[in-house]
Nucleic acid binder design. Structure first.
Lengths: 180, 180
DNA sequence: ATGACTATACCGAATGAACGGTACAGAAAA
DNA sequence: TTTTCTGTACCGTTCATTCGGTATAGTCAT
């Protein structure tokens, strides 16, 4: 089996346990692969596993989130399409954001640059939608950040309360609120 | 020295490294205490250290955040006073939220109940301010959640971008936005 | 005031378990 | 038969935790 097969499994593990908590034993058990097999597919060890997951997600974002933002229609509609995709990514608010997870612990040193770039790309893409619809560029950038803030915050709160309502409500109301 | 002395140090460590990343070696080095001494003050080990920090923070919240929300003035003013306190707690957005940190990794099983209760208490206190100022109860609860979402989200984004601007802007604009 | 006792604070060294990672020989697939 | 994969056994390191013990200071009864 190619290593891509195990990406969803790895993603789930790093989401649930974080970088430091996702031990090789857990990874081995969850994937059904022995340590030797894991190191055959990922010679770079745990770091490379995360790297692979991040590359996969970067591709997923560029094939799902960006097209939604660059699709036809007004700004509200486009943001709604984005939220539909985010709903898949976070499984309706049940799953935490792996990018946020990777910001703490020993993972931060290694992956911060990549995570930062991903956030900036996302925010810029949102801002462009708003600029296209006639919003002032500086305000559009702020509103782009506000989207990221609302999504990330609602995921945290959904995790904290063990209830997906905050995320689902936020992703529903967000598009209209952002566009004024 | 009494164990309370080490609370700020422990708080900093768990914030920076998370529960799984904050090893006894790091704690020993940062506190200047030998591992055996740590177990003298905290016989329950790492769990008890986190518990002690959480108890300290619960007290801090009840002496700083709640009084700010129950102080004199209109809703906007009271929320502004709360944000001033949050600014201290998170050091202007430089420090992540330990409650959010404790939601992932092996810490989640142990501390989720306490974190959930803290969030709910905070949100309820905010909602009460808004209800007092004439807002519908159900909407007030949503707005209380929106405050938590905005604060948590802006902290995540500040960490991701390595720039405190999102947190500082959010905590400044939040009070007026929430009250409509 | 003195010696016996106790509580608190601390530490170096060691424990077994688990960590991330590797070596290698054999199985499976091409 | 060569390449790809995997199971087993291992490596050194680090993990959380504990052991046995010291230093200090205060509390006693004498």
């Amino acid at each position: 089996m190619p290593k891509e097969t195990y990406i969803p499994c790895l993603l789930g593990l790093f989401r649930q346990y974080g970088y430091d908590g996702a031990t090789l034993s857990k990874i081995s058990e969850a994937t059904g692969l022995g340590k030797a097999s894991l190191y055959h597919h990922f010679p770079g060890g745990k770091d490379q596993m995360v790297e692979t997951v991040l590359d996969y997600l970067e591709k997923w974002l560029s094939e799902n989130i960006l097209p939604a933002l660059e699709s036809e229609g007004d700004a509200v509609t486009r943001l709604q399409r984005m939220c539909l995709r985010l709903n898949e990514l976070y499984q309706g608010g049940e799953q935490p954001c792996i990018f946020a997870i990777l910001l703490s612990g020993s993972a931060r040193d290694v992956f911060h640059a990549k995570v930062k770039a991903l956030f900036q790309g996302w925010i810029d893409a949102i801002a462009n939608v708003l600029i296209e619809s006639g919003m002032d560029a500086q305000l559009a950038k702020q509103r782009g950040e506000d989207v990221a803030i609302a999504i990330q915050g609602s995921l945290i709160l959904s995790q904290a309360l063990d209830d997906t309502t905050p995320f689902r409500r936020t992703s529903e109301q967000l598009p209209t609120i952002i566009c004024r």
